[in-house]
């Protein structure tokens, strides 16, 4: 992957982990979260602070257009919607796709039914619940769990 600008909305365990690995690979990374304390997850286990490493962090509500603009959505090559709300993620991902024409948009959706339908509409949804279901089913059957994927 060539070096790009990644915007991640929702800085929980998932968002912060993606942010740190993207940053470590040399990409420019901006993170938006409504909780100012969430930056602690970006700093955790790092030798330098997130901002010293060159990452940016914006406090704001995902649905607020001003917050998305402040976090740099207009220049984002990739957009990750990873807040704890499925509906928030689905709405902001469509904003990124339709209004800002972001090249790569990835959405976390916990509900498999919504993930499946929105995937059919052209969103790249990732459903951790579906992944867990498949892994657990394989584990119960004693099958090789490594081949599973929750990507629709």
């Amino acid at each position: 992957m060539r070096l790009v600008f990644v915007l991640i909305v929702g800085c929980g365990r998932v968002g912060s982990s993606i942010a740190k690995s993207m940053q470590a690979e040399g990409h420019e990374v901006s993170v938006l979260d409504e909780n100012p304390e969430a930056i602690a997850l970006l700093n955790r286990g790092q030798e330098q602070s997130w901002e010293d490493l060159g990452g940016s962090f914006t406090v704001g509500t995902a649905l607020e257009i001003d917050a998305l603009l402040a976090a740099g959505i207009e220049n984002a090559d990739a957009f990750v919607a990873s807040t704890d709300g499925d509906n928030t993620n689905l709405v902001i991902a469509q904003i990124a796709q339709r209004r800002f024409e972001t090249g790569r948009v990835v959405v976390r959706v916990l509900d498999p039914a919504r993930a499946r339908w929105y995937a059919q509409q052209g969103l790249q949804t990732i459903c951790p619940t579906q992944t867990a279901i498949e892994l657990l089913e394989r584990a119960v059957r004693g099958e090789d769990e490594r081949r599973s994927s929750g990507v629709h």
Partner: peptide, 12 residues
């Protein structure tokens, strides 16, 4: 009371 929910409900 949540706009994202209202948008999603009407969209589906």
């Amino acid at each position: 009371g949540d706009d994202e929910d209202n948008i999603l409900i009407c969209q589906v």
